[in-house]
């Protein structure tokens, strides 16, 4: 009886506020847009009984999904989101790996402090961290003033409102997600393995490639997915740092809903985005599973 109560409360909460809303999105994505409130048809009319339910299902169709394939904007936005997320993930890895490596090699009494310094930005507002780059990258911003002061450039570089600013924003805000799993993998590593490799005639560099990198593989993969998956659906970074030609699907969905008020198309955009995300999420879980099995 108590157990039933314990299960029922969170279960019902999630059913009502996670699953049902999701089914509503699915349903609206199959509906037609209408000039009404709410702005779509058909609405389920239960009072009409069986007839109402039949009419409801008969009126559902894949029109919005067909529309998504006919308008360039959408598939370009999906591709460009994947591309921006992919490139930023690789840059984050290149920036994060040396930091994680150095942390794992630091004296043990320093490690907790270094770890806290990596986690601290995560507790500060995401929005503020993105915003902090606006003052740096704008045409009269700190970076341009510095470069012009040094005489490296004669007129300001346009960085804010371009994709470069979006890359910087993603790398900056998601860097802790990359550092932490790589650090966790490297910290467990037995350093005598490196000495053994060097004794056996490996150079430092090849010992790094042949021993350290393979041993931190699960951390690298986990870090990459932790950056890549949320970056695809990112909204704040492209809308503050990107320009009008920065296409990302999170921004398209937002505009479709708030500016165009086309709920059925916004819902269809959301469903396709989820379908795209399933692949990396499944791969990520498989990696986690493998890492757990290797440990246990």
């Amino acid at each position: 009886m108590r157990k039933a109560f314990l299960i029922a409360v969170p279960y019902l909460w999630l059913l009502l506020l996670f699953l049902v809303p999701f089914l509503i999105v699915l349903k609206i994505s199959l509906s037609d847009i209408a000039l009404a409130i709410p702005p779509y048809t058909p609405t389920l009319d239960v009072s009409a009984g069986w007839q109402g339910i039949r009419e409801f299902f008969a009126a559902l169709d894949f029109e919005n999904y067909v529309f998504l394939t006919t308008d360039d904007l959408y598939w370009k936005a999906y591709l460009s989101s994947l591309q921006i997320a992919g490139v930023s993930t690789l840059i984050t890895l290149a920036v994060g790996y040396p930091i994680a490596y150095a942390m794992a090699r630091a004296a043990p009494e320093w490690r907790p402090t270094l770890l806290m310094l990596v986690i601290l930005p995560f507790w500060t507002s995401f929005l503020i961290r993105v915003y902090s780059w606006m003052g740096i990258l704008s045409s009269e911003g700190v970076l341009n003033q510095l470069l012009m002061g040094l005489g490296l450039i004669s007129e300001p570089l346009q960085i804010l409102s371009t994709n470069i600013a979006v890359y910087i924003g993603i790398v900056y805000t998601y860097l802790p997600f990359m550092i932490l799993p790589i650090y966790a993998a490297l910290e467990k590593m037995d350093e005598s393995l490196l000495e053994a490799a060097e004794d056996l005639g490996c150079s430092r560099l090849s010992a790094f490639w042949l021993v350290t990198v393979p041993l931190s593989k699960s951390g690298i993969i986990a870090g990459c997915f932790l950056v890549f998956i949320p970056a695809i659906g990112e909204f704040v970074i492209p809308s503050l740092l990107g320009g009008s030609n920065t296409l990302m699907i999170g921004k398209v969905l937002w505009e479709e809903f708030f500016s165009n008020r086309d709920w059925p198309v916004a819902s269809a955009v959301a469903i396709i985005l989820l379908l795209i995300l399933i692949v990396p999420i499944v791969l990520f879980q498989r990696n986690e599973q493998k890492a757990r099995e290797a440990e246990g």
């Binding site: 506020l17 049902v20 999105v25 909204f235 999170g250 937002w254 819902s267 985005l273 989820l274």
Partner: peptide, 14 residues
């Protein structure tokens, strides 16, 4: 792992 835009949209529609 749900993108925030989708969580937001679905709850609003509910």
């Amino acid at each position: 792992v749900m993108p925030e835009v989708i969580t937001g949209l679905s709850l609003l529609l509910l």
